[in-house]
């Protein structure tokens, strides 16, 4: 199962604007895998959205999940 992740703002400078990961079942696993590949992400502040909803606890993922990593907003 491959999970598609989109990244924005300064996070896209670190890892590119999209990343695909295999063998991740939930968001905790996804974060561990991403931080090990991109250590600078571990130093960054961000929230995770699954299917456009910001999550606050570990969330299981399936192949249709759209995962987005969102750094602090700075619109306006």
């Amino acid at each position: 199962m491959s999970i598609h992740i989109i990244l924005f703002g300064r996070l896209a400078d670190i890892a590119g604007s999209s990343v695909s990961l295999d063998n991740v079942a939930d968001t905790d696993g996804l974060v561990r895998a991403l931080h090990s590949t991109y250590p600078a992400l571990a130093e960054s502040k961000y929230v995770i959205a699954v299917n456009k909803q910001v999550i606050t606890s570990n969330t299981s993922l399936d192949e249709n999940s759209v995962v987005a990593l969102l750094p602090p907003y700075s619109g306006g």
Binding site: F8, G9, R10, A49, P72, Y73, S74, G75, G76
Partner: peptide, 27 residues
């Protein structure tokens, strides 16, 4: 609305300087 736009919308501003350098805006 202005306060909520700034705090809730997933929008990012990259501040560009004249010498091609940049920094990410912080609200």
């Amino acid at each position: 609305i202005v306060e909520r736009v700034k705090s809730e919308l997933p929008v990012w501003g990259k501040e560009l300087f004249g010498d091609q350098s940049f920094q990410w805006k912080a609200n």
